[in-house]
């Protein structure tokens, strides 16, 4: 089994629901996001479009971040998800440099959501496992996935632009859609063999 994701950019409307669902799911501290959405324009007036490119961790089969990790904190799980063990991470940032997708961030401090205020009970309760001085990233909602749920970003998508499933099963919805749509990973030429595919 290898979990992967298909993002249909024809459907993405750049609403950032995925970004916020991810923040809520993981209680990522202020300015930490595992699910960035890049916004850009193509063309010139009046032939112009607003485009969006959601960028979760690509959970590569050949993860360059894992290769450079000196402690083994970064691991590729049996289900294909790439994880970071905060207890093993020494915060050397080598993985941040190695990752071509800018999927990783260094947690230098945990700032309260409401600037200048105390942390809310939500933060106090939900942010216990964060360790300042480590590198953090999308964990593919591995806890949800193990319960048979979709990642939070997939469930919340308001246009159904994200499909999650087993890339090893040729009959899964995601495999069939990738085959029929010609979906490809972002910058496949980098050779990291991402598990996230896009319909451009």
């Amino acid at each position: 089994m290898k979990f992967g994701m298909l993002i249909d950019l024809r459907k993405c409307v750049g609403c950032f629901a995925c970004t916020v669902a991810c923040k809520a799911e993981h209680a990522t501290p202020t300015d930490i996001s595992y699910n960035k959405v890049k916004k850009y324009e193509v063309g010139t007036y009046p032939s112009v479009k607003l485009k969006h490119l959601p960028m979760p961790c690509m959970h590569c089969d050949n993860p360059s971040c894992m290769e450079v990790c000196p402690t083994g904190a970064t691991q590729k799980q049996d289900n294909g998800i790439v994880t970071v063990d905060a207890n093993e991470c020494i915060g050397c940032k080598a993985c941040m440099i190695a990752c071509p997708y800018e999927s990783r961030q260094f947690l230098s401090e945990i700032k309260p959501y409401y600037e200048g205020q105390e942390r809310t009970p939500f933060e106090v309760y939900m942010q216990k496992d964060f360790q300042v001085g480590t590198v953090v990233k999308c964990d593919g909602c591995i806890d949800r996935v193990r319960e048979g749920l979709e990642p939070a970003c997939v469930q919340t998508c308001i246009t159904g632009a994200r499909i999650f499933g087993d890339l090893d099963d040729p009959n899964s919805e995601i495999s069939r859609l990738i085959a029929s749509s010609g979906a490809v990973p972002f910058q496949r030429e980098l050779g990291t063999e991402p598990s996230v595919y896009y319909i451009f």
Partner: peptide, 15 residues
């Protein structure tokens, strides 16, 4: 099952 960014941020409205 879907929810927009604001809906996903409802917890911060509470706290």
């Amino acid at each position: 099952g879907s929810l927009c960014p604001r809906g996903n941020a409802a917890i911060m409205g509470l706290y």
